[in-house]
Design a protein around this nucleic acid. Sequence first.
DNA 1: CCAAGTACCTTGTATAACAGAGTACCTTCT
DNA 2: AGAAGGTACTCTGTTATACAAGGTACTTGG
Lengths: 115, 115
Amino acid sequence: MNIENAQIQMRKGILEFCILHIISRGEVYATDMLEELTAARMMVVEGTLYPILTRLKNAGLVEYKWVESPSGPPRKYYSLTTTGIASLEKLRETWHELATSTNQIINHNQLSGLS
Amino acid sequence: MNIENAQIQMRKGILEFCILHIISRGEVYATDMLEELTAARMMVVEGTLYPILTRLKNAGLVEYKWVESPSGPPRKYYSLTTTGIASLEKLRETWHELATSTNQIINHNQLSGLS
DNA sequence: CCAAGTACCTTGTATAACAGAGTACCTTCT
DNA sequence: AGAAGGTACTCTGTTATACAAGGTACTTGG
């Protein structure tokens, strides 16, 4: 079955966008993001999230500061950089265009029983 | 600049879905699909489309028949199989859920000036 | 018979998600 | 103080995929 695969692919491209968005709303650390993404049915795991955060950091879109935790090891709290804010805006436009294009294609003609 | 990259990633997952959708509306061959995808600003090239069609064929989601062209070599006209129709329905649900989740995240709280 | 155009195919490369295992720090219990 | 368990972050290997670029094959027109 490669439908699951296609479903995974569909989520992939949007992940980075959603993560940037979550960070844009206030300082958060990885577990916060995982909770929010899971709540939104995005089904992301640690092994996926951390590399993305590292990549965003290296690209200069986000930065972090260490904050001590009341229970456990210190956490990296992330926030957007100026570059990150601009990038997020571009991605928002892309997302909007893409959703429009896709809906344009899938609503173009709904011939369900064509053989 | 990795924003372009993120934009490419965003399109990637939706491509297969859009292609299945275009095929579902009636028999088409590769150049037809390229035109339609380009018109919808999906910006796909030959080297991307043909491997996807081969993959969908091998997965049993689409089938094709050779049809002679009035001007040039014969064309492969694609149509969905029964499996393909079912898969498209699943992908449609996934797309809808994903769009909902994404909009849920990006509309959750618009704190633009948080520092 | 050769050139131009159309249609389909293939190879190599770079990127990215994921699974799974690993490291480090902190708190709590004995 | 030492051990156990939980939290947070990291790393390696595998697999999937888009894309660029070049290639093959068929058809029509001069």
